[in-house]
Simulated scan of single mutants.
Amino acid sequence: MPTLGLIHNSPMLAPVFNEIAARIMPDVRILHFVDESTIKNTIAAGWLEKATMRQVIRLVGSTFDAGCDVALVTCSSIGPAVDMAAELYEQPVLRVDRAMVEKAVATGRRIGVVATLATTLRPTADLVRRVAAEQGKHVEIIELVCPGAFDAVMAGDGATHDRIVGEGLTEGMKGVDVILLAQASMARVVASLEGAVPAPVFSSPELGMVRAAEVLRGLAR
């Protein structure tokens, strides 16, 4: 049976990805690998440290040692370390946000990137620039961090998180062609806004898992 290894920085993400997997890849075995240090140390430092990069690379290796055919890292903040891991292993190593960014660059020129953490916003915006360069397209990136939203959700105040993110999406993204959510946890807010968001919104979990399913099918051929 084909096996996908999912590397998370929070145990709360496992059910989200299990639900997607059940819909789009029911014939794939899913193994979850969780290490909260990768995001907590990155937030504390304010950037992605070399020690965290090495830890991400070790985690990717652990998925392959456990029998996984493909590794998918579900955190955008550690994206540069995922790119390094992809160079070091023979098996496919995927960033959860790559497919989302490719779709956004193909969709419009003014791309909004919304996050609740600067440490997540930067890698996502950098990936937009890189994909645009690869595709020979000129894009304008409008970056928005929703202040206070991350602290609220970490304190268990989901309502305040959703209100702050909702205001950012409806007020801060006017005039863009497409909006990217740098964090998967923000997707539920879009669903609650019922058409008030001024542009199409792309979130990484669904598109990232579709990409992983495509890669797994390619390996099986």
Rank of each mutant, 00 (worst) to 15 (best):
residue 3 T to K: 15
residue 98 R to Y: 15
residue 39 I to K: 14
residue 174 K to M: 03
residue 201 V to N: 00
residue 132 A to V: 11
residue 87 E to C: 13
residue 191 A to N: 01
residue 90 E to Y: 15
residue 105 V to Y: 08
residue 193 L to H: 06
residue 114 V to P: 06
residue 117 L to E: 03
residue 216 L to R: 03
residue 84 M to N: 09
residue 47 W to H: 15
residue 204 S to F: 05
residue 21 A to C: 06
residue 69 D to H: 14
residue 115 A to D: 03
residue 116 T to Q: 01
residue 153 V to I: 14
residue 21 A to Y: 10
residue 19 E to P: 08
residue 130 R to V: 07
residue 175 G to W: 11
residue 18 N to T: 09
residue 36 E to Q: 08
residue 149 A to V: 07
residue 132 A to M: 11
residue 180 L to Y: 05
residue 191 A to E: 12
residue 87 E to P: 03
residue 38 T to L: 15
residue 8 H to P: 12
residue 67 G to F: 00
residue 127 L to A: 05
residue 2 P to E: 11
residue 205 P to V: 01
residue 40 K to Q: 11
residue 89 Y to R: 13
residue 199 A to Q: 06
residue 121 L to Q: 02
residue 111 I to E: 07
residue 16 V to K: 05
residue 204 S to E: 02
residue 137 K to F: 10
residue 76 S to I: 03
residue 110 R to W: 03
residue 53 M to G: 07
residue 207 L to H: 08
residue 49 E to A: 06
residue 162 D to I: 10
residue 179 I to S: 09
residue 121 L to H: 04
residue 150 F to D: 07
residue 9 N to S: 12
residue 73 V to Q: 05
residue 214 E to I: 01
residue 108 G to T: 13
residue 167 E to Y: 05
residue 54 R to F: 00
residue 17 F to C: 02
residue 133 A to W: 13
residue 207 L to T: 09
residue 189 V to G: 00
residue 141 I to K: 08
residue 42 T to M: 11
residue 165 V to L: 04
residue 201 V to L: 01
residue 221 R to D: 01
residue 39 I to D: 07
residue 13 L to K: 05
residue 44 A to H: 10
residue 15 P to K: 10
residue 150 F to L: 13
residue 173 M to P: 10
residue 70 V to R: 11
residue 32 H to V: 03
residue 24 I to W: 14
residue 179 I to F: 11
residue 110 R to F: 04
residue 54 R to P: 00
residue 51 A to Q: 05
residue 123 P to T: 07
residue 32 H to M: 10
residue 59 L to T: 09
residue 135 Q to L: 10
residue 187 A to D: 01
residue 68 C to A: 09
residue 14 A to V: 15
residue 195 G to Y: 07
residue 180 L to D: 04
residue 210 V to T: 02
residue 174 K to H: 09
residue 1 M to E: 11
residue 208 G to N: 04
residue 79 G to F: 10
residue 66 A to I: 10
residue 168 G to T: 10
residue 78 I to V: 15
residue 157 D to T: 10
residue 58 R to N: 15
residue 179 I to T: 02
residue 128 V to Y: 12
residue 11 P to G: 12
residue 185 S to A: 12
residue 133 A to I: 11
residue 95 R to P: 14
residue 55 Q to F: 06
residue 17 F to W: 02
residue 201 V to D: 00
residue 127 L to K: 13
residue 154 M to S: 07
residue 112 G to R: 07
residue 196 A to V: 00
residue 58 R to A: 10
residue 213 A to Y: 04
residue 80 P to C: 14
residue 109 R to I: 12
residue 12 M to D: 13
residue 202 F to A: 06
residue 14 A to K: 13
residue 8 H to K: 12
residue 81 A to G: 13
residue 92 P to S: 14
residue 60 V to N: 02
residue 190 V to Y: 00
residue 136 G to I: 05
residue 87 E to H: 14
residue 144 L to W: 11
residue 169 L to G: 06
residue 45 A to I: 04
residue 204 S to M: 08
residue 143 E to N: 03
residue 103 K to L: 15
residue 115 A to R: 03
residue 2 P to F: 11
residue 31 L to H: 06
residue 215 V to R: 07
residue 18 N to A: 15
residue 77 S to N: 08
residue 105 V to F: 05
residue 174 K to C: 12
residue 190 V to I: 02
residue 51 A to V: 04
residue 110 R to S: 04
residue 152 A to Y: 03
residue 26 P to K: 13
